[in-house]
């Protein structure tokens, strides 16, 4: 097969499946699921160190930053200022300029506040961050984010943790035609076929957390998602047949017994 590489801002990504590290039973399960997924981008959150716990375990003891690309998020931030604060701390705690930018607009839906998101993207891009904004499945917002300096856009398939799949494939398709930066579906993927649909549309990658961590068997689902993303990507590159209303026979009519 011809080489099919994902490169963003000069960084090469070895897998088109990106995974989150939230909601796992423990850090060992996190480690095993991430490994089974074959992902090389791993998202993390930034939170206070537990000062009192002397035997505290660190996520990075399980997810080796030399092996994986650590992508810190600004989850839980509802204002531009908060998101900037978390992004700057994340950069200092980590080893790269990458940030998965979230500016959340509403607690119940966790839909992004796109006005704040565009503003924060612009500021962080100017500060040299490689910004991956988590956004709505709205092409106009995606374009504004690209103009603001986003390295890629991350439209949701459905609300975070909902598992509802790709609710608006047509909008995702329009986003793909609207922006030049890579498009990475983030949120909503509930099972393997959802990931495949995202990739078949032509998305550059898919980010999954709850879809894997929340499965009955996260390790199996991690592996399923790995194959689903590869299958979807290959199908996209192969080019699907057009949909038709009526049948067209696969076997020749010639040589049939009369």
């Amino acid at each position: 097969m011809q080489e099919d590489r994902l490169i963003i801002r000069g960084i090469e990504f070895k897998s088109r499946l990106w995974v989150g590290t939230g909601k796992y039973k423990d850090l060992e399960e996190t480690r095993r699921a991430v490994e089974a997924s074959g992902a090389d981008v791993v998202t993390v959150a930034v939170r206070r160190v537990n000062i009192l716990d002397r035997n505290r375990e660190n996520l990075l003891d399980y997810i080796d930053p030399k092996k994986y690309k650590i992508l810190p998020n600004t989850a839980g931030c509802y204002t531009v200022e908060e998101a900037l604060r978390y992004a700057r701390l994340a950069r200092e705690a980590g080893i790269s300029d990458m940030v998965k930018l979230e500016v959340i607009g509403d607690e119940r839906t966790l839909f992004p506040d796109v006005c704040g998101l565009i503003k924060a993207t612009e500021i962080l891009a100017k500060e040299g961050f490689i910004v991956f904004p988590y956004t709505n499945d709205d092409p106009i917002t995606a374009k504004r984010l690209e103009d603001a300096g986003a390295a890629a856009v991350m439209p949701l398939g459905a609300p975070i943790g909902s598992g509802l799949g790709i609710r608006n494939p047509y909008n995702i398709k329009i986003i793909l035609e609207t922006v030049k930066v890579p498009v990475i579906v983030d949120a909503g993927v509930g099972t393997a076929s959802d990931a495949t649909i995202a990739m078949e549309l032509g998305c550059d990658a898919v980010l999954i957390n709850t879809g894997i961590a929340g499965a009955r068997d996260p390790l199996k689902m991690a592996e399923a998602m790995k194959h689903a993303v590869i299958a979807g990507r290959l199908a996209y590159l192969a080019g699907r047949i057009p949909k038709k209303l009526y049948a067209s026979a696969s076997s020749p009519l010639e040589g049939m017994l009369i």
Binding site: T21, G22, A45, N73, A75, R85, A93, G161
Partner: peptide, 30 residues
Amino acid sequence: NLQVIRKNDFKDFKVKDGDVVEIVNFVGGG
């Protein structure tokens, strides 16, 4: 006090009375 302190400055940065210090790290997240 809301100012990120670079790692290189940890050894010289003196904590003062009343300072608001936040120490964060990475935890599981999506």
